[in-house]
Design a protein around this nucleic acid. Sequence first.
DNA 1: GTCTATAGGCAGATAGAC
DNA 2: GTCTATCTGCCTATAGAC
Lengths: 195, 195
Amino acid sequence: MASSSPRKSADTAERTLDVAERLVQIRGYNGFSYADIAAELDITKASLHYHYRGKAELGQALIARFSARFALALESIDRDATDARAKLDAYVNIYSAVLRGDRMCLCGMLAAEYETLPKPMGEAVARFFQDNETWLTNVFAQGQAAGSLSASMTPSQAAQMILSGLEGTMLIARTEGGLPRFQASARSLLDALTA
Amino acid sequence: MASSSPRKSADTAERTLDVAERLVQIRGYNGFSYADIAAELDITKASLHYHYRGKAELGQALIARFSARFALALESIDRDATDARAKLDAYVNIYSAVLRGDRMCLCGMLAAEYETLPKPMGEAVARFFQDNETWLTNVFAQGQAAGSLSASMTPSQAAQMILSGLEGTMLIARTEGGLPRFQASARSLLDALTA
DNA sequence: GTCTATAGGCAGATAGAC
DNA sequence: GTCTATCTGCCTATAGAC
């Protein structure tokens, strides 16, 4: 925006998203409140309502930013990495960075709470997974064409296997094993799909 | 127990677990209340507190029953199925039955909410995954010895891949694709591990 | 074993002053 | 933009009658 005020290091709306994002990734959408955010930002709940009309609106903004950031990261990978396996390794690194903060993937967390989410949030979560699957499918098709990735399943099947494998591993690693466990499992997963 | 009263078809304590289990599997531990259960059973919240002192105690009972039932199912598989691949297919069928009711695995759901759970609940969830991994590791070792399962990774790695793959697929399938998607992904997963 | 009644707290949200 | 003050409703939980 950069419209009205003399641009602080991070305005309240953005810092609200930062705090809320972390809370959702660690505690879940039904596990945090406006009061939690207000306390961390040292403002009142009423002030938060100025920036986001309600929790549902905040939730949508959260997914929108997360998805946009993820899309940028994927574009960045497409620019920097050449072969398919390198792209997949970089893809795994995105998840590793999340888990390093003891966080769950935002959309993985919201997927668990899917039945309790406002409809627009649920739809945005589903789109996130679709977009990731599309990207992974393309990467896998590229890898198969180059002969570097296993041709024992379709690119679409492999994409689902990677996506759900990483989300599931994240989910379980948070209860035990943490980042080391996640990285070992991710390596096994990719190795199983490498020709 | 079967101690005091003339044993009804299902006493309140048991029916409470049935309702609470479904609510947790669909909405999560932080997404249901005593009021929800009371309404379904047509009793008051106060009556529920007679059977389970508080929500944390109910939560522990939930995991205990779920884990015990799961353990019985695994014993049953060990009796009925002969080769390793048949055991894994039967294992997947347990998950399919859960998803058929639009439910998430109880412990998969609780894993997402791990950071908000009372300590005893969190520990019980971690144990559930450990027990499953142990069983799967043994099945995989058996399959490798018989030459029916892929020897390209250790039994322990394969067990983690199956467990997290199924949990992750369940998580995502609930947002889109449902049971058909889960079953297709599970088949891909097992096929990838079959020699 | 189930009830009524109630406590005490926290949730999401709004009105209106500054 | 942020505040104080407040609302309404739901949450978990308890005391005590039946």
